[in-house]
Computed example of a mutant assay.
Amino acid sequence: MTDFQSVFGAAPAGGWAAPGRVNLIGEHTDYNDGFVLPVALPHTARAAVRRRDDGLLRLHSEQGDGTVTELGVAELTPGAVDGWAKYPAAVVWALREAGHEVGGADLWIDSDVPTGAGLSSSAALECVVATAYNDLHELGLTAPELALIAQRAENAFVGVPCGVMDQMASMCCAEGGALFLDTRDLSQRQVPLDLAGHGLRLLVIDTRVKHDLADGAYAELRAGCERAAELLGLRALRDLPAARLETALDRLPAELRPLVRHVVTEGARVERAVALLDAGDLAGLGPILTAGHASLRDDYRVSCPETDLAAATAVQAGALGARMTGGGFGGSVLALVEDGALDQVAAAVTTAFTEAGYAAPRTFAATPAAGARRIS
């Protein structure tokens, strides 16, 4: 294990952290201008940073191969950087594209956000760099503005057409709460999520699998949603009321109907979940999670055998509800469990994976944590 000084030969100007996220409900709604309800994980990407005046961006990751990647800030262009370094490079590029006169830096990165698990490790990395640059250059950008910079970085530089949920969660979530976010106008409200006070826990089950189908499928799904909205004369699928869903489906090609059904019903599930949290009925989230998984499996078709097995086994073992979380085709499952059932649910899923011939999943309890911040 190295530190900033041993890598770069001097002390950093400060340290920052930004969390990964797990989404309670509201999957694939963010790029449809819909509602989402994520919480920040205690797992974070951390950065020690020092400004440079020579236009060089020097990057070191504790999860990398031990080398330092050097890039010229003025030469950063979309598609020109590979591997993990493209995420911090993308943020610097996006800040400059937005008119902010930022330069080079030495960045030492460490992260315990699981990668490839649908828990937004890339957004955490983007947001910690954006937060550090905002402070070091005294840009005065708000957390939502930094989230939009990070989203722009991932869309235009990295080339992933994601919505804004992951970056907004990493920037804006509060400890002990869930972020009720309208992705159209970015209005938000922190909804109290006192799991411990209700004898509940959130169990994250990282299946440790990611299927190659995800590479182009995300863009295809988004394009299908946009096509459906266009055919229905809507700005986005968010504008289709649940009461008009069945009538609208009759007007669409058969291949688009399941996508629309998921987006509309998922939006309703988010609003129902928020109402339950406001009423203090946290256990009532369980059936909503399970219904959300069924929709992602049967209508949106982004689940896979491993996430289906994890969700079903968790419920059979006593979880109040469970669903896959993240973009899909692997990644993680989120289960709502009573405090005393945490270990038995985790053990049941691990046993089921062994019997199915799958590698053992990683399981951990998630406590709603704070968003991006300076730590030193």
Rank of each mutant, 00 (worst) to 15 (best):
T290F: 06
N32W: 01
A319E: 08
A294G: 14
D215E: 13
E138K: 12
P253F: 14
V92D: 05
G140A: 12
V274L: 01
R58C: 13
A90H: 04
P144W: 10
A17S: 12
V263L: 03
A18C: 07
P42W: 07
A169V: 07
A369C: 06
T325Q: 01
R51Q: 15
A123V: 01
G104D: 12
L334C: 09
L139N: 09
A90S: 15
G330C: 05
G66E: 13
V36H: 03
A80S: 15
A228G: 09
Q5V: 10
T67N: 15
A319M: 11
L342S: 06
A153D: 05
L249W: 01
D3N: 15
T247S: 12
G321T: 10
W108K: 10
S111R: 00
H198L: 05
V315S: 09
E145T: 07
G103K: 14
Q167D: 06
D194L: 02
V68I: 15
T351H: 13
H198A: 09
A13C: 08
E255V: 15
L136Y: 06
T363S: 14
T183N: 02
P361E: 07
G199K: 12
L71F: 12
P161L: 03
G327K: 01
P38I: 10
A174I: 03
T67W: 08
T29K: 05
Y300F: 12
V102E: 08
A117E: 04
A117T: 04
D339S: 14
V68M: 12
L59T: 08
A123G: 03
L95E: 11
G280C: 05
D110R: 11
G140F: 12
